[in-house]
């Protein structure tokens, strides 16, 4: 009755709300934890202490190099057809503007295709993308590539509608990528509301002029660490189930939901198992990634360091889509492995989270999944998640302790049972 014991402890027992309260203490103390910042390194040192005090094993930090970008002071003011100060969030790795800013006319488009079609109009302009939100993975391409596509047609800067499912005038940030051989131009996200207003103005023939100022700066790579803790396996200690979340966040809100929730239900999974005096046959390894928001930078270095042991990884798990009431588990692996995971999820009938979906993934675990290791991610209420994602609304208030208890229970049952079963999950 291990599953029932874990569920009872996490959802109804003395461990209930523990992951929420632990997370609140950290993010209230440290705040947001952008890559390269002092607050991220402070959070890592606090977690190193926390995990040792929690009695976990082989607690250690693995050094890595990560990018360091700072947004500085930024503003965008519409000067025509009327004065309107706009809320913006510069995008990660963007360059800044000259001190006096960039003042230019605006070209509003709703797609890359429209931008290509109207390329002659773009030269010397600020391109505003008012792309509709389809889903995150599709629409995020506008945030990531908006500057490059605008620069290719001679634009001076790009302002991109936030990639958000819902907005109450909240800009959302995130990483963007320049391209060799294409001029670098400043790029930022604007609110859904402003993108749509400028689209309406432009369609009426209004001339729109914006003054954009960005103090963004890229610094030399910084030192950081992936944080690791284990419950060492009793029978096959060299074999591993890896459970993870990322400790870094954007420089907005508190980074509570992205990805404090995922990091702390992953810690909670090990705490629950330890509290029950359980020791799985395989090693249960917690990894709190650094610099995930820069593209899995910490995780990639971890993979390079440990890939020689890829055959010993039974399952890699990352929670980076929220810790509200889970819809189920996303899974990537062979049919036979999926059949086994479906049986494991049946153990979560008491909390009514038994569904197994396709496409288990996570920026930090995709390296292992591509190397053939089965992968799992916790599926959540994505509409709610992407309304707060990478915005100042990403705070403890966005989370619910009771729902986080259920997420932690699911995470703990899956990771423990797979780590304790007689055989590793079969590969494709």
């Amino acid at each position: 009755d291990v599953a029932k014991a874990i569920i009872d402890l996490a959802v109804y027992g003395k461990a209930q709300n523990r992951s929420y309260e632990r997370l609140a203490l950290l993010v209230d103390t440290v705040g947001p934890r952008p890559s390269g910042s002092r607050s991220l390194e402070k959070a890592i040192q606090i977690m190193y202490q926390n995990l040792r005090e929690d009695g976990l094993e082989n607690v250690h930090l693995e050094p890595v190099k990560i990018p360091h970008w700072e947004r500085g002071e930024e503003s965008a003011v519409m000067l025509e057809p009327r004065i309107h100060r706009m809320a913006i969030l510069g995008l990660g790795s963007s360059i800044g503007t000259p001190p006096e800013g960039i003042t230019a006319e605006v070209l509003v488009v709703t797609s890359f295709e429209e931008l290509q079609r109207r390329a002659p109009e773009a030269r010397g302009k600020i391109v505003v993308y008012n792309q509709p939100y389809v889903n995150y993975s599709t629409t995020v391409q506008y945030r990531v590539q908006g500057a490059v596509e605008a620069a290719k047609v001679g634009a001076l800067a790009s302002l991109i509608r936030s990639v958000a499912s819902f907005s109450i005038y909240s800009p959302h940030t995130g990483i963007q990528e320049y391209q060799d051989g294409v001029p670098k131009i400043p790029t930022a996200c604007i609110t859904v509301e402003d993108a749509e207003m400028m689209s309406r103005m432009a369609s009426r023939g209004n001339r729109i002029v914006i003054q954009l100022k960005m103090g963004a700066k890229n610094y030399p790579d910084a030192d950081s660490f992936n944080t690791v803790a284990e419950i060492i396996g009793s029978k096959y200690p060299e074999q591993v189930v890896l459970v993870s979340g990322h400790l870094d966040s954007w420089d907005v809100g508190q980074g509570a939901m992205d990805d404090g929730g995922g990091a702390f239900i992953s810690w909670e999974a090990l705490s629950l198992i330890k509290d029950l005096g359980l020791r799985p046959k395989r090693t249960l390894r917690l990894v709190l990634w650094t610099a995930e928001e820069q593209g899995g930078v910490g995780a990639f270095q971890y993979y390079l360091l440990h890939q020689a042991n890829v055959s010993n990884y039974s399952l890699v798990m990352e929670s980076d889509l929220g810790t509200f009431l889970p819809s189920g588990l996303q899974f990537t692996g062979s049919d036979e492995a999926r059949a086994i995971v479906e049986e494991v999820m049946r153990l979560l009938q008491p909390v009514n989270v038994t569904r197994v979906f396709r496409a288990g993934e996570g920026t930090d675990i995709n390296f292992w999944i591509q190397a053939g290791v089965p992968g799992a991610s916790l599926l959540d209420d994505l509409y709610r998640y992407f309304s707060f994602h990478h915005s100042d609304g990403d705070t403890m208030t966005a989370l619910d302790p009771k729902q986080m208890n259920v997420a932690a229970a699911v995470w703990a049952v899956v990771s423990y049972v797979i780590a304790d079963m007689e055989e590793m999950l079969p590969r494709s």
């Binding site: 009755d1 049919d335 059949a339 494991v344 304790d420 055989e423 079969p426």
Partner: peptide, 24 residues
């Protein structure tokens, strides 16, 4: 070996199912 389900022999899969059920 018995006929296969998802490339696991039914006996083996059945065993795994029973093993997992024991964690309930």
């Amino acid at each position: 070996k018995p006929i296969y389900k998802n490339d696991i022999s039914r006996r083996t899969f059945q065993e795994i199912k029973e093993e997992i059920a024991s964690y309930r």
